[in-house]
Each structure stands twice: as structure tokens, then as C-alpha cells.
Simulated assay, not measured.
Amino acid sequence: MPIFICEDNDIQRNAIEEYIQNYLMIEELDMEIKLSTNNPYEILSYLEKKSISNGIYFLDVDLQCDIDGIKLGGQIRNKDIGGKIIFITTHSEMMYFTFKYKVEAMDYILKDDMQDLQKRIIEALEQASTHYQEDKNNPEERLKIKVGSKIRVFPMKDVMFIETSHVPHKLVLHLDQSTVEFYGKINDLESISNSLLRTHKSIILNVENVSALNRKNYEVTMANGEVCPIAMRKFSTLNKRLGSK
């Protein structure tokens, strides 16, 4: 698991590095500090050049830069969906903005007490390692789509179907209990998962969530009770897919 540190105070950045290095050496965890910097753009440049997943990011909030740690966290979230973001700061009042920018931070550590800071950093590393192992042992397919300026991730088990919207160039994702509109092309989506099947010119459905077929009306009932049409020529294809489950 790659670790990134962004802290504008050299003394504090060096302390954070030391806490992490000492802990990794003792515990022999499969982690490594890839980049430690005072420049948030170095982090973003690194992520642009390399495909990083499940990174661990220790970010100061006030970086004395035109981009603060929370906005940096938001951009990191778009590039590393599974990344673990930990804010380290003296500004507890800024916690609200982590929700505003949909950063989904794993922890928010205050710098008030350096001994407590070391303890909290170690706890964050332990938690990140635990989450990573759980994800490896229980792989769950997810659907990633861009909604506005954010990348959102949905468990495939919650996805019912995707249909074209009456708004040009927009699609509607039907989930178990809600819907989400986003811009996209339906032709680009069928190939992103083996669970998805194009059953109509305007619909791609999740085969795993089909609960019933109605041959008379050429309709499909999904696990959440929603009903959507199916093209006549696609009926036998879907029937075969369901029979092989």
C-alpha cells in the first residue's frame, strides 16, 4: 500500500515520516512511503502518471497554497477510489468541508499533542491495513461512474438497471432504493461488467438482479420490484444467461 504525505511544515512532515517509518519497520507491513512533500501538486502529478489504488494519504489541511488539503483530498478521491485519506491539522472547524467536498476521510487527527499524533497515525495505518485485507478476502464488484465532478462507486449488487434519460446525453442509474442521473453513453457501459446485459436500445440491466421474466409482455421484473421492457430479440439471450446462473 503506497503512502503519501503532504505537509507544508518541514519539522512536522519529518516527524510524520519518522512515526510511519519506525512503525513499518517494526511491524513489517506491506506499505511504503512513495512521496512526502509540501506541494499538493506533486501528489496530483504522481497520481496522473501512475495508476494508484488503495493509497494512504496523510494530508495537512492548511498547505499555504492555492489548494488546501481538503480540496486536494477531493481530487485524490477522483483518482484513487479506494484510497484512505487522513487529515492532520490544527483546524478542527474545517471538518465540515470534508463532507461538502465528499472526500470521505478515514480519520481527522488534530496536531495538538504530538504523542497522541503518533498514536493516531499508527491507528490509521492499522485500520487501513485491516480494510485492505478485508477487501482482498471479500472482493465485491463495484460500478464506478462520474456524477458531476465526482467519481462515485456503487456495489454491483445494488445496481438494477441503467436507462437513457429524457434529457439528452444523460443516463439514469436505478439502484435498489434510489436513482442517480449522470452524463454518459449507454453504448459505453455494457462492457464494463459481465453482470450487465443490453436488453433494449435504451436499457442495460444487471442480470444478477433479475427476479422474473414475462414472455407475454416482454418485460423483466428486477429484485427491487421495478419493471422494465426487453426487446423481443434479446429475450432468449437473457433467458440463457439466467439459466446458466
Score class of each variant (00 low, 15 high):
residue 72 L to H: 11
residue 128 A to F: 05
residue 90 T to M: 13
residue 102 K to C: 01
residue 74 G to M: 13
residue 54 N to K: 08
residue 242 L to W: 03
residue 37 T to V: 01
residue 206 N to T: 09
residue 134 E to A: 07
residue 136 K to P: 00
residue 113 D to I: 07
residue 149 S to K: 14
residue 116 D to L: 15
residue 205 L to T: 08
residue 14 N to I: 00
residue 68 D to P: 06
residue 191 S to E: 13
residue 152 R to G: 00
residue 106 M to Q: 15
residue 173 L to K: 04
residue 143 L to M: 13
residue 58 F to Y: 11
residue 171 L to H: 10
residue 7 E to N: 05
residue 22 N to T: 08
residue 81 I to L: 15
residue 233 R to P: 03
residue 24 L to V: 05
residue 21 Q to I: 13
residue 109 I to V: 15
residue 44 L to Y: 01
residue 1 M to L: 12
residue 226 E to P: 05
residue 37 T to I: 02
residue 123 E to Q: 14
residue 151 I to K: 08
residue 218 Y to D: 06
residue 134 E to C: 02
residue 211 S to R: 10
residue 45 S to H: 12
residue 109 I to K: 08
residue 64 Q to S: 14
residue 68 D to I: 04
residue 106 M to L: 15
residue 127 Q to P: 00
residue 97 F to L: 15
residue 203 I to A: 02
residue 108 Y to Q: 12
residue 185 K to Q: 15
residue 65 C to V: 00
residue 153 V to P: 02
residue 113 D to C: 10
residue 143 L to I: 05
residue 109 I to L: 12
residue 115 Q to K: 14
residue 108 Y to V: 12
residue 6 C to G: 09
residue 45 S to W: 01
residue 12 Q to H: 01
residue 90 T to R: 05
residue 195 S to C: 09
residue 218 Y to E: 13
residue 5 I to V: 12
residue 243 G to R: 02
residue 54 N to A: 02
residue 216 K to V: 11
residue 62 D to E: 15
residue 76 I to T: 07
residue 88 I to E: 02
residue 118 Q to V: 02
residue 100 K to W: 01
residue 38 N to I: 01
residue 147 V to K: 11
residue 143 L to W: 01
residue 149 S to Q: 13
residue 120 R to G: 07
residue 39 N to E: 06
residue 81 I to R: 13
residue 112 D to G: 11
residue 151 I to W: 11
residue 202 S to Y: 04
residue 226 E to T: 11
residue 194 N to G: 14
residue 76 I to P: 05
residue 39 N to A: 03
residue 117 L to N: 08
residue 218 Y to S: 12
residue 100 K to E: 14
residue 126 E to M: 09
residue 226 E to N: 14
residue 210 V to D: 02
residue 181 E to H: 11
residue 97 F to D: 15
residue 49 K to S: 12
residue 155 P to E: 07
residue 16 I to N: 00
residue 212 A to V: 04
residue 83 G to I: 02
residue 220 V to W: 10
residue 135 D to I: 08
residue 196 L to W: 02
residue 11 I to T: 00
residue 7 E to D: 14
residue 120 R to V: 09
residue 108 Y to R: 10
residue 80 D to T: 10
residue 140 E to D: 08
residue 178 S to N: 14
residue 66 D to S: 13
residue 188 D to I: 02
residue 67 I to P: 02
